[in-house]
Design a binder for these strands. Structure first.
Lengths: 144, 144
DNA sequence: GTATCTGCAAATGGTTTGCACGCTA
DNA sequence: TAGCGTGCAAACCATTTGCAGATAC
């Protein structure tokens, strides 16, 4: 199973014109399976379990490469640091808590009609995201 | 006209629970009338024409206050620095150029049905934005 | 074989913070 | 006049950059 999964990721990277390394595979797998929309630091901490020698700089460089070819999105300016989200997953939107900075996926097909836009105002569109910001349930509970 | 406009902005700040200062009025007017979704630095350069003594720190503090009360949005993680956009304008979305970082408004009523959302997944929503990223016409032209 | 990637460390620079003074309400 | 905002400057820290050695293709 591990093997099959890994082979898939190799193909994905190649198809997007990226050179394949073990570090990049590990980083993209973490992003792909994560549900927390991790920061670079968080990805770094997780990759370190498998590659103790990896550096934070390498993580940033890999994330930037993935972003350039459209394999991930940078999410939300409400948060203090950049948070990353793998694309290649079903289209979805994000709920961002302005207090604790939790980011939760939000699925709503009625918002996704325009899922794969092509051109608007002369722009060639390569991606889209819908961001909602507000207060998450637990932060609502702690507000006086 | 100046007087009337200014009076309106005073009311707007008060209604949002903010103490009114000439600096804040100037900053919010610039944001409100700007079409370029300026950065903090850009706002600073513009306010300086009227208030040469103002500091960049004050601009950041004012922008943060405006954000806290929902008078502006922070736009796009595709850009290097945070860009600001006054709310209180008709709902619209943003086209962000991944190359030159131009941000253009995009009006599409079919995307705005959910304009004033209230609650999703237990989140109390206070704002939303739709971001498209891609290449603007002039950057498309310079690509080989 | 050569371009690209990695690891390390230093540099960068957008943003935040602390403090003394001034202004708003 | 009490509290909040401003200006200034230093600090912070997420992210970028440069480089030498290693790896992908």
């Amino acid at each position: 199973m591990e093997g099959r999964e890994e082979k898939d990721f190799i193909a994905i990277l190649r198809e997007h014109g990226l050179q394949v390394t073990y570090q990049r595979l590990a980083i993209y797998q973490i992003l792909y399976y994560s549900k927390e929309h991790p920061s670079a630091e968080s990805v770094y901490q997780q990759v370190r379990k498998r590659f103790p020698m990896i550096s934070l700089g390498t993580v940033y460089k890999a994330l930037e490469k993935f972003h350039e070819v459209g394999l991930l999105q940078k999410v939300s300016h409400v948060t203090d640091v950049t948070r990353y989200d793998a694309t290649l997953t079903p289209p979805h939107h994000h709920l961002v808590c302005v207090k604790c900075q939790k980011i939760q996926d939000y699925h709503d097909s009625s918002l996704t009609e325009e899922a794969t836009p092509a051109e608007k105002n002369g722009f060639k569109i390569i991606g889209q995201q819908v961001l909602f910001h507000g207060y998450c349930p637990s932060c609502l509970g702690t507000m006086v």
